[in-house]
Design a binder for these strands. Structure first.
Length: 571
DNA sequence: GCCGTTTTCGGCCCGACTGTTTTCAGTCG
């Protein structure tokens, strides 16, 4: 939380300095600091507490000045220099710059000439024809800005990973129909598996770029064409999502794939390394003078610099280059490593399918075991049920296991953690279950300390095995409840409770960063779908990609184990 | 503002597309 707050502040400082046309490299420095702070896997408050200002300066991109600002924020809750900077512009002036097509230069120009300080005033001024007399403004530019304002009204922010994935798949399918695209690869944050996606980046290898461009802007899912050039086009899809397509030749495929996958800081770092070697890296390849010496494959983008291959999910400037230099890139978990799903609902509570239907669907995926986990009585909205009904369900689970050959079906429950930290079924009921998942479904607004203690108390119950969707967030809908994740992870370790990575694209919780920390602490993890129907079992891949972003290997995730080993690990 | 087995000062990634420019600035990724 604190990391994100500070990252946002430093990004805002960068934007404000850009409005002031301050030194471009100073602006970059703030952006870099912001991104590095955002991707820290430790709470910045903890870093400061344990190592003081020196520890802050050890964060890459954070120097003496930024460290002082962080210290000020940690101690006082504000940064004076930032507030002063904000006061140089009207309230919410940055909203103007957020409009696609508007940049700092245009925003300042229009503010000085016409006093425009909000998207609303901007829209009015354009429609009243007031921009006509401003040098550098023309009909096309007005049209672009209006379109940007409309887009901003309709699309609020980023898209969920599954939504972006399905749209990318659709575009790939359409482009495949052309016979001139030799390779099509979705890149960008989608390929890195980020929890939300801003736009779709597609890379195409073709010797007929013009035909690819024409086909791309002509796809029926395309609503609007933002730009169409010889090798690069940008469009807006019907759902408001932007998609960018770039065509390169085969010899540049690796360099282009690397470049379009990002992240930005990762790319810049590699380009800087190239400079130091006297080389140049661009999306076209690795060059010595004008001669291409690498970049046809993505592997070369790393091997030429003496690095191990860095999988896309790790390219977030979280130490991947240091690890790759030492040959310490982890052997990341893959979907095929998953042997079971330990969080499933059935028609007994709020699911859509029966125990046997879920079991058969899971078996078809090649898994070896499942855990049935319907809701406990407190979660009335989800049809949570009584202890008596749970005892009945245990019998149904045992019966189902006899009816569906080739898969182990375990009896469990997603048990509510009540506000006082006690569990929603008594121990004598819990002990009859094979495994118990614990969850927070109520009193989300508790203060952090109280919530943290509530969860830790629940973990101390000897029947608690897995803590599901640990922050309770719903991406784009609801913030997670306030918890001290560090303490919760410590408690998970002490009480041998596994932390869940919930694979639902709205949850993806634990997050990647928390996964990294959990692994460091030796906390056990599981990846579950929380499926409420058989088709949701497919969501496992999003949990796996989140685990990969958290540097997890199969051995870190219990449901890659055989059932025997899994049960031994949790008891 | 950050950073350093070529530097504590002098650098700081690289390129595509658009619009209105008369040779390029602004924006974007």
């Amino acid at each position: 939380m604190l990391n994100q707050e500070l990252a946002d502040i430093f990004l805002n400082i960068a934007e404000l300095l850009e409005l002031k046309a301050d030194n471009l490299f100073k602006i970059r420095a703030y952006e870099k600091a912001a991104r590095n702070i955002e991707s820290l896997n430790h709470d910045i408050g903890e870093i400061y507490k344990s190592g003081g200002i020196k520890a802050l300066e050890n964060i890459p991109g954070v120097g003496a000045h930024t460290a002082l600002k962080i210290e000020e924020y940690l101690n006082t809750g504000k940064i004076k220099a930032f507030n002063a900077l904000k006061h140089e512009f009207p309230n919410n002036f940055l909203k103007l710059v957020e409009i696609p097509g508007m940049g700092p230069k245009t925003a300042i120009l229009l503010y000085k000439k016409l006093g425009i300080d909000s998207p609303e005033k901007l829209e009015k001024a354009i429609k009243a024809g007031k921009l006509k007399d401003i040098p550098g403004m023309g009909a096309k530019k007005e049209e672009n800005i209006l379109r940007g304002i409309e887009l901003k009204k309709k699309v609020h922010g980023r898209f969920l990973l599954d939504v972006a994935t399905s749209h990318a798949e659709l575009l790939v399918e359409e482009l495949s129909k052309l016979k001139v695209a030799d390779k099509i690869l979705p890149c960008g944050s989608l390929r890195r598996g980020k929890e939300t996606i801003g736009d779709i980046d597609l890379l195409v290898v073709s010797s007929h770029p013009a035909r690819v461009m024409d086909a791309f802007v002509g796809i029926s899912a395309v609503k609007d064409v933002l730009a169409k050039g010889e090798t690069k086009s940008s469009v807006i899809l019907q759902n408001g999502m932007q998609a960018d397509l770039r065509v390169v030749e085969e010899k540049s495929f690796g360099a282009a794939a690397h470049y379009f996958t990002g992240c930005k800081e990762h790319n810049i770092h590699l380009r800087q390394l190239a400079q130091q070697t006297g080389w140049k890296v661009s999306e076209y390849g690795i060059f010595r003078k004008d001669k291409q010496i690498g970049g046809e494959t993505e592997e070369e983008m790393f091997s030429k610099f003496g690095f191990q291959f860095i999988p896309p999910e790790l390219r977030e400037m979280r130490g991947e280059f240091e690890a790759a230099a030492k040959g310490k890139i982890p052997d990341l978990i893959e979907l095929k490593d998953i042997k079971g799903d330990l969080h499933l609902h059935t028609t007994a509570s709020d699911g859509a399918n029966t125990i046997e239907e879920m079991a058969r669907a899971v078996k078809a995926l090649g898994y070896e075991y499942i855990l049935i986990t319907d809701h406990s009585p407190s979660t009335r909205v989800a049809k949570g049920f009584s202890a008596a009904k749970l005892l009945q369900q245990i019998k149904e689970v045992r019966a189902a296991e006899k009816n569906v050959a080739g898969i182990r079906i375990l009896a469990g429950s997603e048990v509510d953690i009540k506000p006082d930290g006690s569990l929603d079924y008594p121990d004598e009921i819990l002990k009859q279950l094979d495994l118990v998942i614990i969850a927070v479904h109520s009193s989300f607004k508790m203060p952090e300390e109280k919530m943290t203690n509530r969860i830790i108390k629940a973990m101390q119950n000897k029947y608690a095995n897995i803590f599901t969707h640990p922050t309770g967030r719903l991406i784009g809908e609801r913030e997670g409840y306030a918890i001290d994740m560090e303490k919760v992870l410590q408690a998970a370790k002490e009480n041998n409770v596994a932390m869940e990575i919930n694979a639902h694209p709205k949850r993806l919780d634990l997050t990647d960063v928390h996964c990294m920390r959990a692994k460091e602490l030796g906390v056990k993890l599981v990846i579950n779908t929380d499926a409420h129907s058989t088709d949701q079992l497919q969501l496992m891949k999003y949990g796996v990609i989140t685990a990969r972003r958290g540097w997890l290997e199969a051995k870190d995730v219990l449901n890659t184990y055989s059932l025997t080993r899994l049960l031994q690990s949790l008891k």
